[in-house]
Design a protein around this nucleic acid. Structure first.
Lengths: 195, 195, 195, 195
DNA sequence: GATGAATGAGAGTTCATTCAT
DNA sequence: CATGAATGAACTCTCATTCAT
């Protein structure tokens, strides 16, 4: 059984499945390898410890999000149109990964690898920031807030709204409405024309 | 021995201290009782399980937050002044409880007690909503967004901004500035006068 | 099940039995607790780790040896008579504890607790040294060698002869003879009358 | 590739290095092959198991000792001069191999291959015995002790003194002095002229 | 009510060994 | 001969929980 078969994606996939079900701490390496169909020891050929899975999964989630946003964005899209796509994809990915997203936040935080998280997020932030700048330059939007803070707050707001939506299971409001209100809130902040 | 020495607050205090240090999963009941200075078995006289600590702690945090906001709010304060206080107190409590806030979110979610969380949060939400309504009625602010959604988004934004500020340890921006930009973002959304 | 029953001696006894059979590294904590009839976790109430058993066992062996020597030594015994008893008891204890003695040597050495070993041995060394001094003062024996070195070498020689006797299982020579030759070797060194 | 690159000595060398560092049980085959620069499986082409390394290493140590003694011994040397060399070389090799010597003792003992040990030691014992016999025949030394026992005891004493010297790290006495006292002890036993 | 020794299942991790290439 | 990915049993150690006192 030499050379071939890369078991790594099997393990990551299995971990994602189990973590979604039971969370990080309540999933054992034994659960993961059973799900992956590999031996207990095989896990440790690819990851030095269970904790090392966290950044691997985080990277996969963020990459997926960023890619699906970029796939859907048209070159001539307005800032609001772009943000609509960001909202849609963030909601979609939050719905899909749910428990894992919380894991990535707290997990990465706990194991003192915040730098790693920032590093992963950096290109995403830059891209959003660039879109906002373009919108401002072209006059589509306006804001008194410093650009990088604005970027951070908008991403934060979108993510936390998505999380709090899928977090509980309130059926009082439809996703449609929530997203609409969210975009309304953001855009009213970006079309600021106070005195 | 004087009085009747109720051990419950001792245990909750001890748990808060230890959870801050090591997180929920990595803190053992043994750690907690050592910190509290009570016996191992005593813990189980007050809590059926370690998990039961989570709502107890969550309640304490939220109560603290809500009380300190109300203490600082003047009857004649404008909506923006009120939100300034909400921001200040939220930042303060997030700084203080940090790790525990993440615990409460994920812990409550994990153990299927979201209802409990909502129940605790309800009076806080209602109060903020009432303040916003008052602002709108009196003409100080305006928004096209449905009131309860607006409330949720504003609280979300404040909390997530505070969390993301204390989460990493970026010293690029001062708390002062972050809070200012946050309030600017919110208020520009609340002084909407698009056509 | 509070307060009473001290399981510590049960565990030490069990460990001695199992270590004799299979050696330290090949005995699992699980083996020990099964032998002791206690739960796995109970072991860790008394010892922080498996390694911590080593000094505990070492101390028991050395104490046993020293006590049985002192019980057998008469106040008016000559140095050679005393050494005869030391030889007898050392052979007896080496026969009995065999594998464990090697463990104590290498175990203590390995886990960097040589100081602890020396500390345990100190009273034994002192006592032998005192007996030799008495013998020299009273004229029964004589030696050009510095007293503490002499003590060390004699103890070393006795121990290593005993070990190498029980180590293999050569039946070529009887214990009786080996001990006789050993005492002859030592005493010829202590009745030195070269030029 | 040049020659036929026999990997066996590479593996033995690597094992010696690692065993010195971490001891036998705490060194993995993986450690050894990494140090040797060969593949995991290659190890098992040369040794049926990790345990098989022990006699191979023991043989190397004893061979080294014996060779360096013989290199230094002059044909016309007196018994005491020869023993001086034996002492010097034993101390040197004990210093160098330290941890490994303990391994060989206990390892060989544990795996029931005492015969193998005796077999290796035989020529060394014979040679020492022959030197002692020559000394007695020529009148340089004398002893009432049976020759093979005498040989064993002298070798034992030298080895155990060396081991106990390098075992701890007492700097109270210099090697020089220890060796001197040791030779004094031995020679006073070999120049026995009690009535 | 309060205690804390005892429990034992189960966790993460290691590692000697195998075998398809 | 040589490789090294894969194996899985076995290890040490943790910890929420119980219950006799």
């Amino acid at each position: 059984m030499a050379k071939k078969a890369n078991k790594l994606p099997l393990i990551v996939d299995a971990a994602i499945i189990r973590f979604k079900e039971k969370g990080f701490e309540h999933t054992s390496v034994s659960d993961i390898v059973k799900q992956a169909g590999v031996a207990q020891g095989t896990f440790y050929l690819y990851f030095k410890s269970k904790n090392e899975l966290v950044p691997a999964i985080a990277e996969r989630i963020l990459t997926t999000l960023f890619e699906s946003i970029q796939e859907n964005v048209d070159d001539h899209a307005s800032t609001i149109e772009i943000l609509t796509i960001v909202v849609d994809e963030t909601f979609a990915i939050t719905d899909q990964y749910d428990e894992l997203i919380k894991l990535c936040y707290s997990g990465l935080a706990y194991y003192h690898t915040y730098e790693r998280w920032e590093e992963m997020y950096a290109p995403y932030y830059s891209w959003i920031e660039a879109q906002l700048k373009k919108g401002i330059d072209e006059g589509g939007i306006q804001s008194k807030i410093e650009l990088s803070s604005l970027t951070k707050m908008i991403i934060n707001l979108i993510e936390s709204t998505a999380e709090s939506y899928f977090f509980g299971n309130q059926q009082t409001t439809s996703v449609r409405e929530v997203k609409q209100q969210l975009l309304l809130f953001i855009s009213s902040s970006l079309t600021d024309n106070q005195s």
